Computed example of a mutant assay.
Amino acid sequence: MDLRLKFNEDEYNYDKYRPTYPEELFSDIINYSRISSGYEALEIGIGTGQATLPILQSGCRVTAIELGNNLTRYVKNKFKNYMNFNVINADFIEYTIKTEAFNLVYCATAFHWIPLEQGYVKVRNILKDDGTIALFWNHPFPNRQDDISNIVNRKIYNKYRPSDKEVREFNESDCQRRINELERFGFKDIIYRLYHRKRTLTSNGYIHLLNTYSDHRVLPVEVKNNFEMDMKNAIDEIGGKINIYDTIDLYLAKKK
């Protein structure tokens, strides 16, 4: 199964437990792109709209493209009162989009699902002259060694999902790869920003959040159930809450 469609299985849980993005991030996008009423924006992979409302409220027309049919129906209803919103149920790469149609193309924690070269080339083609690309991701990190809730989280992960991959927090050195990509595929005036926050979830809330991750949803049923039971019990034993340390990275650039 296409892992991208795992997000389509439980849109209500996804909308409730996936976080939105910092207000400062949207201010940076709007100020950089100068979008307002009369401008056209395209959101790639809208999901349940965690990154949509501030762009809609800028007054520009937002067209969203979403692979999942359930997610498409969900956001169509969620934003039904906004006359400047439209959503298309399609694959971004396969769907035909008019060239130089948008002032802003943006994507929230989804662009990594798109083939690299095809994605950047298509975005560049559909942007108007001097149009803006905005790419951003949220990197949750519940693995700090000075946080007891993070320590028990890692213990359960090591039990059920051991990995040789280094567990480390996203940092500024990781941003250069995206900057290089934007330069390589013909974008200019590149800037990036990092934002940080801490979320605190109950044990139940954390289990619900894990069920918005495609790699968690594809676990064998018995493994998944035991993992969730042990995770909940471990968090409950240390007070019932877990801290998640988010790093959000934003990249802004203009079409050459």
Rank of each mutant, 00 (worst) to 15 (best):
Arg61Cys: 05
Val123Cys: 04
Val75Arg: 13
Asn125Leu: 09
Gly49Ile: 09
Phe85Ile: 12
Phe85Ala: 05
Leu53Thr: 12
Ile65Tyr: 14
Asn81Leu: 12
Val87Phe: 03
Ile65Pro: 10
Leu104Ala: 02
Lys98Thr: 07
Asn89Ala: 14
Thr109Lys: 03
Phe85Tyr: 08
Phe111Cys: 02
Arg73Ile: 08
Arg124Met: 00
Arg73Ser: 13
Tyr74Gly: 15
Leu56Ile: 14
Arg61Leu: 06
Trp113Ser: 00
Asn89Gly: 12
Leu104Met: 13
Leu67Ile: 11
Tyr82Gln: 12
Phe79Ser: 07
Tyr106Pro: 10
Asn81Pro: 08
Thr96Ser: 12
Gly47Leu: 11
Ile55Thr: 11
Ile88Phe: 03
Gly45Leu: 07
Glu117Pro: 01
Asn77His: 11
Val121Gln: 00
Pro54Leu: 06
Phe102Ser: 01
Pro115Phe: 05
Glu66Val: 11
Cys107Pro: 03
Pro54Val: 10
Tyr95Ile: 01
Ile114Leu: 07
Leu53Asn: 13
Thr48Trp: 13
Asn84Glu: 14
Leu116Phe: 02
Phe85His: 06
Lys98Gln: 11
Phe85Glu: 04
Thr99Met: 07
Asn103Phe: 03
Asn89Arg: 03
Tyr106Asp: 02
Ile97Ser: 02
Asn81Arg: 10
Ala90Pro: 09
Phe92Gln: 06
Leu53Ser: 04
Phe92Ala: 10
Ala108Arg: 09
Leu53Tyr: 06
Leu71Met: 07
Gln57Ala: 12
Thr63Ala: 11
Ile65Arg: 13
Val87Ile: 04
Gln50Arg: 13
Glu117Asp: 03
Arg61Val: 08
Ile44Cys: 08
Asn70Gly: 09
Val75Cys: 15
Asn77Ile: 09
Asn84Val: 15
Ile114Glu: 05
Asn103Ile: 02
Ile93Trp: 02
Ile93Pro: 02
Glu94Lys: 15
Val105Glu: 00
Tyr95Thr: 02
Pro115Trp: 04
Gln57Trp: 09
Glu66Ile: 05
Tyr95Ala: 01
Thr63Gly: 01
Asn125Cys: 01
Leu53Asp: 08
Ala110Met: 13
Val121Gly: 00
Phe92Thr: 09
Leu56Asn: 14
Val121Met: 01
Tyr120Arg: 00
Thr72Glu: 07
Gln118Arg: 04
Trp113Leu: 02
Ala51Ser: 13
Gln57Asn: 10
Asn89Glu: 15
Lys80Asn: 07
Leu56Thr: 10
Asn84Pro: 10
Glu100Arg: 04
Glu117Gly: 00
Glu66His: 07
Gly68Arg: 05
Lys122Tyr: 00
Thr96Phe: 07
Met83Cys: 08
